[in-house]
Simulated scan of single mutants.
Amino acid sequence: MNFTFCHNNFNVINLEKSIEFYEKALGLKESRRIAPEDGSFIIVYLSDGTTRHSLELTWLRDWDKPSYNLGDNEFHLALEVDDFDKAHELHKEMGCICFENKQMGIYFINDPDNYWIEILPAGRG
C-alpha cells in the first residue's frame, strides 16, 4: 500500500484576494474549481504546474469570522524556490514576510488569512 500527497486545504474569507495573493507571491495558478449551484461553498485548487500536489482553498458562504483559530501556527506549507534572493525581495515588497530565520536561511510569509508559508532555497525541501 502506497500513499501519495494530493493537496492541503486552507479555509479563506476572501477567495479572490487569496487566489490573487498565491498567484503573485508564489506563482500558483487555479487548476480547477468546485462550486455547487446553491452557492454554499467554493473550492479552488491551485497548482504549481510542476508537481501533482495542490493547495485547496475553501470559501464557505456561512463563515463570517474574520480569522480562524490557527493556534501557534506550527502547521504550514513549505515551498522551495530557485531564486531565493529574488523571492525574498518580492515578498518584502509585498509586506508579507512574517518571520525570518537567517541562521537557517529560511523565512515565512503569511497569506491574507494569516496562514504561514515557509520559503526555502532550492534543494532544501
Rank of each mutant, 00 (worst) to 15 (best):
T4M: 07
C6G: 08
H7I: 02
H7S: 10
N8C: 11
N8W: 01
N9Y: 01
N9L: 01
F10E: 02
V12T: 14
I13Q: 14
I13F: 13
L15R: 13
K17S: 15
S18L: 11
S18W: 00
I19D: 05
I19N: 01
I19F: 02
E20P: 01
E20K: 14
Y22F: 04
E23C: 07
G27T: 04
G27E: 02
K29H: 12
S31F: 00
R32M: 00
R33L: 10
R33V: 12
E37L: 09
G39E: 11
G39P: 00
S40W: 02
I43E: 12
I43T: 07
L46T: 01
S47I: 02
D48L: 09
G49C: 06
S54P: 00
S54H: 04
E56C: 00
W59L: 14
W59P: 00
D62S: 12
W63F: 15
D64F: 09
K65M: 09
K65N: 09
K65F: 15
S67K: 09
S67R: 06
N69D: 14
D72Q: 13
D72S: 12
E74I: 09
E74R: 07
H76Q: 10
L79I: 15
E80M: 11
V81R: 07
D82T: 05
D82V: 13
D83R: 11
F84V: 02
F84P: 05
D85R: 08
K86C: 08
H91F: 08
H91G: 09
G95K: 05
G95W: 06
C96Q: 07
C96F: 13
C98Q: 07
F99S: 09
E100M: 13
Q103V: 14
Q103H: 10
Y107W: 09
N110V: 01
D111W: 02
D111E: 10
D111M: 02
D111S: 06
D113A: 10
N114K: 08
Y115K: 02
W116V: 05
W116M: 09
W116R: 11
E118W: 06
E118I: 01
I119P: 05
I119T: 10
L120D: 12
L120C: 10
L120A: 07
A122G: 04
R124V: 12
R124S: 13
G125D: 03
